[in-house]
Design a protein around this nucleic acid. Sequence first.
RNA 1: GCUCCCGUGGUGUAGCGGCCAAUCAUUCCAGCCUUUCGAGCUGGGGACUCGGGUCCGAAUCCCGACGGGAGCACCA
Length: 570
Amino acid sequence: MTNKIRVTAQKYALQNAVQFNGKADTKAVIGKVIAELRKNGFSPQEILPIVNKVISEVNKLSADKQISELEKVAPELLVKEKKERDFSLPPLPNAEKGKVVTRFPPEPNGYLHIGHAKASIVDYEYARMYNGKFIIRFDDTNPDNADIKFYDAQKEDLQWLGINWDEEYNTSSNLNKHYKLAEQLIKQGDAYVCICSSDVIKECRFSGRKCECRDSNCGDNLDKWKQMLKGGLDDVILRMKGDMGCVNTAMRDPTLFRIIETTHPIQGDKYRVWPTYDFAGAVEDSISGVTHPFRTKEYELRDEGYFKLLDLLGLRKPHLMEFARLNIEGMPVSKRKIKPLIDKGIVLDYDDIRLPTLRGLKKRGILPAAIKQFVFSQGISKAESIANFSLVESANRKILDPISKRYFFVPNPIKLVVKNAPIKQKEISFHPSDKSLGSRLVKTHDLFYISRSDVEKLKIGDIFRLKDLYNVKVCKKNDVVHGEYVGENLISDSLKIQWTTDSFVEMNVLVPHQLFNDEIYNVDSLETVKGYAEESVRNISDGEIVQFERFGFVRLEKKDDYIIGYRTHK
RNA sequence: GCUCCCGUGGUGUAGCGGCCAAUCAUUCCAGCCUUUCGAGCUGGGGACUCGGGUCCGAAUCCCGACGGGAGCACCA
């Protein structure tokens, strides 16, 4: 028996010694030995002394000897194997294949952004993972906020992301059901109409005191409720009887229904009593069959009320889960911050390429697959974090690199005249390794344009290469660069620069930088680079993403009489 | 103020009692490769907030401190 311990101990002691300068560490080795032998019924007490002894023996051995011994007893431990990381979502608790139902419940009051992308991707992917159902539900229970144009806009954005839903509905179409449930609560004595002013309610809630309305009898409450619905009573609310003394202030008789007279974009003037999120969210999750609703952490304190309400109503309780919001450094998501910039005309619109809205990201050239990868890499923990956009860029670049055509773009062009330039017709392929992307034919004579930043690097007498063409020696530099043709042999360490002929396409590329630096608007956040692109960019399709060599990946939009570029990232 | 949640390299994450002298990605640096400053390849730097406790053994469990976030709406 002790022999087995000895053998195991020796194996790991040798491995540890080989890995760390010939000296095995007791704690590290003991851990491994116990982990392996515990399932065989060995106790730490019997293992410990043996391991200690083995380690001191092993540590006396020379390094070579340690390696050769290890080779004898356990050659597989000689190579350190790499562990694979799994990027999929963790399994869902209480989940059964085929029986998971998730939902994404946006309020139709704005364009979707990267934060919504996280929520919807998580919801959608879990439904897929378990062969379940995914519902999109518009939480449009506040007619002051809901705007008809966003129902479709949000769906378009989700479709762009590659998210498909099995079912779609509006919470506002279930109001009659909600009213019935409200009545049930009133009859049970679990809800009451409160006629206090919002200031009084706030004050009472803060101090934990109840108001007189709470003690009125159900008949009274039912009458008042009916008056609320009919229009005989204004400025009153329906509250759940929670616990006014509860340390969780969200439990101090939360509002269930309030009166809003605004015309609803879909329901019109049919209703004037509208459920709050606390009521509608919980009830809808339950009656629509959602098994695993997700929401962001700021709702955590409302969980207790969520379950209490469903309890009172006798409704099924879903497995509610929360995760942290997604933040990106310098890219605020809140309308509070973005709207003023749009109003002032500083940010063009909600699809501005500096914004983390899905429309902004799309316009910039970020692919849905990159967003998905990014969201997966963030996970669904409750730890709040501020991610850097480079994570998105890097994912996007790796997808784009093998599939995007390369073009020459010359920012801040300067004229180059080449003496003895041969007339050429050169076929240049669109991708360095994937020839299936094709090529273009470029005709050259002695006139070119190259970028100012490259010109600045050149000294008289230097030889550089017009990339994919030939070598040029610098003769003179003023407003125009004068060079001389010096052959075509590739000089490996020469500067290779991008160029255009005098048949170029003049165009601008908008380059986004961080919108906010430490909460302050960055006045240099949108840079316009003027330059010449090679003629063949005329043949791209509208919205195509290409790489301008040594400049970055650029999404091109083809307008009637011009082309404009948005730099996705370097 | 009260309550809740969170705290792993610069950044983002994995791990959630022994297989962790800690994963992967990103960023940065170096080299290789490349007719792009892109991609790829190799290597390097760099972390368990702190203090107690439980245990043979703690990033992991408990307590406390500190730091960050959220809620205290007739908004979601």
